[in-house]
Amino acid sequence: MSISRRTLLKLVGATAIGATAERFISAHADTSTARILSKAVGAGKRLSRKKTAQPVRLAMVLDLRKCVSQLGCTKCIEACDKTHNIPDFGDSKDEVKWIWKEPYENAFLDQENFYLTDQFSNKKIPVFCNNCNDPPCVEVCPTQATYQRTEGIVMMDWHRCIGCRYCMAACPYGSRSFNWRDPRPFINDINPDYPTRMKGVVEKCTWCDERVDQGLLPLCVEACPVKAMTFGNLNDPNSDVRQLLKDNFSVRRKPGLGTSPEVYYLV
């Protein structure tokens, strides 16, 4: 009988060391407890990579070469904002955003390089939730209001969220937004097919999980005029995303933090 990772974490968590157990196991793989645990989950050296055993691990590949050629294009952002009822407060303090643009240098802060090619220097690139494989936001949430689907998408239950914003402190990518005030009066044209949020809860990009369930692509992927974004299953060697990653050099944002971000930027 195999134990799922969730069950295992619950067991370990009950002994009050849940948060560190995973790291402990990978760091001390030769201790007997760790041997038993890793045997139970059938893991190799690193437990955190174990989820690749799932048949589907969704990922996004963003071809920056195509993207930056469309200077000033905001089609992906517009499509997302309009459908997901993103409010426009007109100030950065209350701002809610799921996908937006940042200068390349800021998005890849830890890869400081003063001699960037003209292609990327001072160019703004789209950033959004990385839907990490090991999401720190899910780890810290005290109510499991933010959780992970088996396909990897990091979800948000707006009805359970208590608004403590611990997830925002934990996210290394600044991907989460909080409703500092009632967003509804600031939504230009409410889309009745998607929920609006209330004040006091956190929200984020979920790669259009509602569309994925219907077999549709995320809106940003569909909206891109140059087809710079590709969405698919990382665990399928024949998928488009895998083919792109095989043929092109890719980078991820802050991979050194161990969060396993699943947005791959082709440069």
């Binding site: 974490l9 849940g18 948060a19 780890e139 949430c141 109510t143 359970r160 611990y166």
Partner: peptide
């Protein structure tokens, strides 16, 4: 929903 992996 007690969440043992949350420090909060």
């Amino acid at each position: 929903y007690p969440t043992f992996h949350s420090m909060m």
